[in-house]
């Protein structure tokens, strides 16, 4: 009897695992199956045509990559510096550290749509307005949604990811190295930049990649900070709007007037986005695993 109960228990938990993996398999299989039907070189390199029923999605790929690049330029350096501050300068038992650390942790769980609101309220309505007043005598340039503000919003969103990952790896660098360096008469700064950071390099990379992967997939924060459904030209100025893969998927899925005509293109777009984010995630996981092995040694 006990054996039977045991068996049932193990089998049930195994079943749950199989169900989850099956769902994953169905989703990925569905996307891969339909997504590759219309996938072609042209699809990746050409602009959309005839009301999104033909052509490609190059502007959306371009916009997403540009967005993510701008975002990393802001999020990675600031994130790394905050992590250095947390791991090397802040006193872990101080109240200041505990509170700020908790704020960062908490930020990681704030809904992305709230970041969208923040981007609109802070970057577009406040900073943008201030710039326009100061440099463009009130003409509407920066006080409207744009790729710059979308990227900044995304940067704030991904900041905790960078901070948390980098801080963890900095803390994983053994104290021995810091002591050896200081005992040789190096300053703290020299120790951080010559000994500690080079060893935490993989953590910085992982943090950056995870941030990019998150940034590439999030749509809610760019809904009203800069993404547009269709633009005849690629963005060339920070105040330009941009096309975005995730945003494109949302519009194609929910607002298409001719579902059957746009469906193949939609699937291919989904496929491209999924491949992009998976590649980024897998790279991050690989770096992390290599780092763990290295740390054990």
């Amino acid at each position: 009897m006990r054996k039977f109960v045991d068996r049932t228990f193990v089998v049930l938990s195994l079943a749950a695992t199989v169900i989850i993996l099956a769902i994953l398999f169905v989703i990925i299989g569905n996307i891969a199956y339909h997504g590759t039907e219309r996938l072609s070189w042209e699809f990746i390199t050409a602009a959309p045509e005839s009301g999104m029923t033909a052509g490609g999605i190059f502007p959306a790929i371009y916009g997403t990559v540009l967005l993510v690049l701008l975002m990393s330029l802001a999020a990675v350096p600031f994130g790394v510096l905050v992590a250095i501050y947390f791991a090397e300068y802040a006193r872990p038992e101080s109240r200041l550290y505990r509170w700020t650390r908790m704020a960062v942790n908490n930020l990681a769980g704030v809904p992305s749509i709230v970041f969208g609101l923040f981007g609109l309220g802070f970057f577009v309505q406040s900073i943008g307005k201030a710039i326009d007043r100061a440099a463009y005598s009130g003409r509407l340039v920066y006080a409207q949604p744009s790729i710059l503000w979308a990227a900044m919003t995304m940067a704030v969103l991904t900041l905790p990811v960078v901070i948390i990952t980098v801080e963890e790896t900095l803390r994983a660098v053994p104290r021995d190295y810091r002591e050896a360096s200081l005992a040789l008469g190096a300053t703290k700064l020299q120790t951080i930049f010559r000994v500690v950071l080079p060893q935490a390099w993989s953590g910085v990379m992982t943090g950056a990649i995870l941030a990019i992967s998150r940034g590439a997939g999030e749509v809610a924060p760019v809904l009203f900070t800069g993404a547009a459904y269709f633009l005849p030209r690629l963005p060339s100025h920070p105040a330009d709007q941009f096309m975005h893969l995730g945003y494109h998927i949302w519009v194609l899925t929910t607002q298409s007037t001719n579902v059957e005509a746009t469906k193949p293109l939609l699937y291919s777009t989904v496929f491209v986005l999924v491949v992009l984010t998976f590649l980024l995630n897998i790279t991050a996981i690989l770096i992390r695993n290599r780092m763990r092995k290295w740390a054990v040694r």
Partner: peptide, 15 residues
């Protein structure tokens, strides 16, 4: 299973 977390929510919504 963590890969599932890597799928953007707009993709899940679309699916």
């Amino acid at each position: 299973i963590e890969l599932l977390a890597g799928i953007p929510s707009v993709v899940l919504g679309s699916f």
